[in-house]
Design a binder for these strands. Structure first.
Lengths: 119, 119, 119, 119
DNA sequence: GTGGTCTAGACCACT
DNA sequence: GTGGTCTAGACCACG
């Protein structure tokens, strides 16, 4: 896990996103235990409260589940993970389209720029 | 100008974006005078300082120029406007790609979703 | 007289400076009558008040003298003109040195840049 | 930091310039944390908003960066600092030449005056 | 009436 | 305690 932070988003959001990425990419498998708050806090060199906040977000989304004193685990519900992926994708794409449409640029041009950038 | 605000972004940002849109779409022509701070404040039902803040951002970008007591005007430098459009588009697209790439979704799928949404 | 205005300084200052330049360059000779407020206002396409304001500044500096209903004239006191030139030069240079010294750039470099720019 | 203000320029400009000077002279090192808005406000005996305004200018120039609730820092990008120095120098020199050229004083004389003043 | 600056004071999110 | 946003209200220079 690479812990690099920017300042355009809250820390806890960035941490949550990192973990989501790890789950979606399979780095954290379904049902696998997630490192503890304290351990992650040390790893990422942030305040434990921040990790806690990130975990709360992830539980709300349903990507991780807390088993009380036994720690937190990636949900075993693979469908839930896939659904999260879709929901997030739609959210991001919707925001993107809302933003970009203000610029009055033809759709084909946008797509061609995307393809270029992606190379 | 429709003045509907959300709470996910600062007011002054949303106002600045509205004006940018108006300029890029040609609603405000190059060299045209822009409504005064106080007038926009009333229209948008916000504090004049907030409008001023928005205008400052636009001046930094170079889209509008202040002529002191004679009011504010859309820049006559059409190239500057076009450049702003490009710069902003790249910024938005870059952010989008950074966000979406975390989800590990194949590029073709992303583009097809974009096309669908856009319809 | 070329009447182009920028917005970084008040109009009346720019007009006063234009007239000073005309005097210092000899375009307006010592003792020569200066165009009337109304005439200059039309020429420069500005409000007569603005010209008036500029004239006041110039009278304070002593570069022009009012002869009541007979109009305004460039002072015949050539020494006064020369003195104005020096005073203004020193003022400008002082401000320049104050500004540039903040940047901690060696003097020789500054002078060499000036010489380059001037070419 | 000596907090003496004149009234020919806005407070926030003077504050911004003070900080720039501190950065360019190395008093504030790259990556170093800058005193908080509130603290500077007390030190300089001005309203926090005024400090904030000054900081905004500096962020636009790229000399300082905000890390959200973790405070503001001098940019670690030394090249950015050097670039700012150059850009500002050119701006000041350009303005100076524009001002001084109106007085129709030979270049050599100007330079000699500068050298004298500087002594 | 126009832009611009400044103050005082409040509220919010984040750590 | 940190930055950030917003309001309300005041004052100034300019035309």
């Amino acid at each position: 896990m690479a812990w690099k932070f920017t300042s355009d988003k809250p820390l806890y959001t960035q941490i949550a996103e990192s973990i989501i990425t790890a789950v979606l990419s399979g780095e954290y498998a379904p049902g696998e235990q997630i490192p503890s708050v304290r351990q992650l806090a040390i790893e990422a060199a942030v305040n434990p409260n921040t990790i806690q906040h990130a975990f709360n977000e992830l539980e709300n989304v349903g990507i991780i589940v807390s088993k009380g004193t036994m720690g937190r685990y990636v949900t075993e519900d693979v469908a839930a993970i896939e659904k999260s992926r879709k929901v997030m994708a739609e959210k991001i794409i919707k925001k993107f389209l809302a933003d970009i449409s203000q610029l009055e640029i033809p759709m084909e041009e946008i797509i061609s720029i995307i393809k270029e950038e992606k190379i």
